[in-house]
Design a binder for these strands. Sequence first.
DNA 1: TGCCATGTTAAACT
DNA 2: GAGTTTAACATGGC
Length: 245
Amino acid sequence: MEGPALTLLKEEAHAFIGKKIVEASGSSKVDWDTLAGQQLRQLQSWGKHFLLVLDNCTIRIHYLMFGNYYLNSRHPDKTPKLSLQFNDGSEWNNYNCAVRILPETDMSRLYDFSTDIMDESWNAAKAKAKLKNHPGMQVCDALMNQDIFAGVGNVIKNEALFRIAVQPESLVGALPPRKLTELLREAHTYSYDFYRWRKEGVLRKKYCVHQRKYCPTCDTLLVKKPTGELQRNSFYCPVDQVLYT
DNA sequence: TGCCATGTTAAACT
DNA sequence: GAGTTTAACATGGC
């Protein structure tokens, strides 16, 4: 689940803020007893980390690849990793995710929110400075690097690179200044498009290259291959996307 | 129907 | 002990 999906969850779950947890349970290894009785103070996210700030600790949820959640309902037969019951009878169930309790409620002490692509304080200049420190890094790895672009995942990587016509194995240090600027801008812009399209339920339909077969502009057969140190699949047009090395 | 994939962590190994 | 590789998690969609 990429960053923009968590921004959406923050909105969907907004009504839970202020409610008191009466019971917490699930198959995660968590000290459940400490959670009951606490009030949900805030919902925050950093990159792909979802944060439920309580009175004296914070629940951190990472939905990994296949995680999902049910608000005020539950999966018919699966056991939640984390199930929260609230004082008004509402419930929040989370599946296939990694759950941890952070002994801290001030998230600004743990996270630099200006590296989060979806945060209002997102700082492109800071990301640019980090990129300058890694001239030999491939752009596919740079975009997936959570210390530089927190929240960007494989879909955003592939789609943003298509938009700026850059081949995923291009080296950060070889990008012309204009392309570097486009990279920073499009990582941000595409993330918001991702958010909007997911909200409208049309995200998959909007993919230009990710999990696609042919280039939407020139009809060339797209290349699908694992790239970079991370070896995550890249989808790109061998004609339209330029390799800078 | 079998296989791949929106991701990360921790154990196992060198 | 540091650095690197592998396993684990677990399921909807093509």
